[in-house]
Computed example of a mutant assay.
Amino acid sequence: MQRPSHILNAASNLLGIALVIIAGLNVSHVADKNFADEIAWLAAICLATSCLLSYLALRHERRAAVTEKWADRIFLLGLGALIGSILVLAITNR
């Protein structure tokens, strides 16, 4: 299995988690009280971009190295934002 496919699998799974966090905060009306959902939106955008770039790296061999590098960087940014969203939510709901 190639590295971009690992990024694609992980990013798509974490994108689902970010969307569940966003939906849960909006349904429970907690989104108005803190900015954890804005951070989760940032994570969702980064993870969706990482999914797209890792898919493009799998499809286009010629530019795969550059696209894979950016997919990896944006994935880590999205992962950090997702962790930040959970931390903000945990701290503000003490």
Rank of each mutant, 00 (worst) to 15 (best):
M1E: 12
S5C: 12
H6L: 15
H6A: 11
L8R: 08
N9M: 15
A11E: 02
A11R: 02
A11K: 01
S12A: 12
S12M: 04
L14Q: 10
L14R: 07
G16S: 01
G16C: 04
I17S: 05
I17R: 12
A18E: 01
A18V: 01
A18K: 03
L19Y: 14
V20N: 11
V20S: 09
V20K: 07
V20H: 04
V20C: 02
G24Q: 00
N26E: 12
V27T: 14
V27H: 08
S28H: 10
S28D: 07
H29M: 14
H29T: 08
A31H: 12
K33R: 15
K33H: 13
K33S: 12
K33G: 08
K33N: 11
N34C: 06
N34Y: 05
F35D: 11
F35H: 09
A36Q: 06
A36T: 01
I39M: 05
I39Y: 10
A40L: 01
W41I: 15
L42T: 13
L42C: 15
L42D: 09
A44K: 05
A44P: 05
I45C: 03
C46I: 10
L47E: 03
A48L: 07
A48F: 11
T49K: 03
S50E: 06
S50P: 00
C51E: 06
L53F: 10
Y55C: 11
Y55I: 13
Y55M: 15
L56C: 14
L56P: 04
L56I: 05
A57Q: 02
L58N: 10
R59C: 13
H60S: 11
H60F: 03
H60K: 05
E61C: 09
E61R: 06
E61Y: 14
R62E: 14
R63A: 14
T67I: 10
E68Q: 04
A71W: 03
D72A: 13
R73Q: 07
I74W: 05
L76R: 14
L77K: 08
L77E: 01
G78Y: 02
L79D: 04
L79R: 07
G80N: 08
A81T: 04
G84R: 01
S85E: 00
I86L: 14
L87Y: 05
V88S: 08
L89F: 13
L89H: 07
L89A: 09
A90P: 01
I91P: 10
T92H: 14
T92F: 02
N93K: 11
